[in-house]
Computed example of a mutant assay.
Amino acid sequence: MAQNSQHLQWTNAEVNAKLQDIMTSCYNICAGAGARWSNDTPELQGKVAPSLLASANVAGFIQVADAMRAQGDWW
């Protein structure tokens, strides 16, 4: 979509590099949210990875809440 709207042409390598950056960023955001907000018991923390599905939901909620706060729509 970005290529089309800006009338650009990217090589396959550029598309793959951009996609890899996006996916790495998404994983890091979700893993960070999971590590911080996971409700795993203390015995499990550091031994198993938190659920990326639950972490993605938490990270999404945080981004929406931050955007609302930035716009002044805060309760």
Rank of each mutant, 00 (worst) to 15 (best):
residue 23 M to Q: 14
residue 25 S to N: 13
residue 48 V to R: 12
residue 73 D to N: 14
residue 25 S to K: 11
residue 74 W to L: 13
residue 23 M to E: 14
residue 15 V to S: 05
residue 67 A to D: 09
residue 29 I to P: 00
residue 61 F to K: 08
residue 42 P to K: 09
residue 27 Y to R: 14
residue 5 S to Y: 08
residue 62 I to M: 12
residue 53 L to C: 08
residue 5 S to I: 10
residue 35 A to D: 12
residue 2 A to I: 07
residue 26 C to S: 09
residue 62 I to C: 04
residue 73 D to A: 14
residue 44 L to E: 09
residue 23 M to Y: 11
residue 2 A to N: 06
residue 8 L to T: 00
residue 69 R to E: 14
residue 11 T to I: 07
residue 25 S to E: 14
residue 66 D to H: 03
residue 39 N to H: 07
residue 72 G to C: 11
residue 36 R to N: 05
residue 22 I to D: 14
residue 51 S to K: 00
residue 9 Q to E: 13
residue 22 I to M: 13
residue 44 L to T: 06
residue 11 T to F: 07
residue 16 N to R: 12
residue 34 G to Q: 04
residue 12 N to G: 08
residue 40 D to R: 02
residue 39 N to V: 06
residue 26 C to H: 10
residue 37 W to V: 01
residue 39 N to G: 03
residue 17 A to S: 06
residue 11 T to G: 04
residue 36 R to S: 08
residue 25 S to R: 12
residue 27 Y to G: 00
residue 33 A to M: 06
residue 63 Q to D: 10
residue 20 Q to M: 07
residue 37 W to R: 06
residue 66 D to G: 04
residue 67 A to G: 06
residue 30 C to Q: 05
residue 37 W to Q: 05
residue 35 A to L: 14
residue 5 S to C: 01
residue 47 K to N: 13
residue 48 V to S: 08
residue 69 R to L: 11
residue 5 S to P: 01
residue 21 D to W: 05
residue 23 M to P: 02
residue 57 N to E: 12
residue 25 S to T: 13
residue 64 V to F: 03
residue 17 A to G: 00
residue 58 V to T: 10
residue 75 W to L: 11
residue 58 V to S: 00
residue 54 A to W: 03
residue 51 S to C: 15
residue 37 W to H: 15
residue 2 A to M: 06
residue 33 A to P: 00
residue 35 A to N: 11
residue 69 R to S: 09
residue 15 V to T: 10
residue 4 N to V: 12
residue 32 G to K: 02
residue 40 D to T: 02
residue 72 G to L: 08
residue 10 W to N: 04
residue 26 C to N: 10
residue 51 S to D: 15
residue 22 I to H: 12
residue 46 G to M: 09
residue 71 Q to Y: 06
residue 36 R to C: 04
residue 41 T to P: 02
residue 19 L to Q: 13
residue 60 G to Y: 03
residue 3 Q to V: 00
residue 56 A to D: 00
residue 11 T to S: 15
residue 8 L to G: 01
residue 72 G to A: 04
residue 12 N to E: 15
residue 50 P to I: 03
residue 19 L to D: 11
residue 8 L to E: 00
residue 13 A to D: 15
residue 61 F to T: 12
residue 4 N to E: 12
residue 21 D to V: 07
residue 59 A to C: 03
residue 70 A to N: 09
residue 57 N to V: 06
residue 53 L to D: 07
residue 9 Q to S: 13
residue 1 M to V: 05
residue 53 L to F: 09
residue 68 M to V: 05
residue 7 H to I: 08
residue 70 A to I: 03
residue 44 L to D: 08
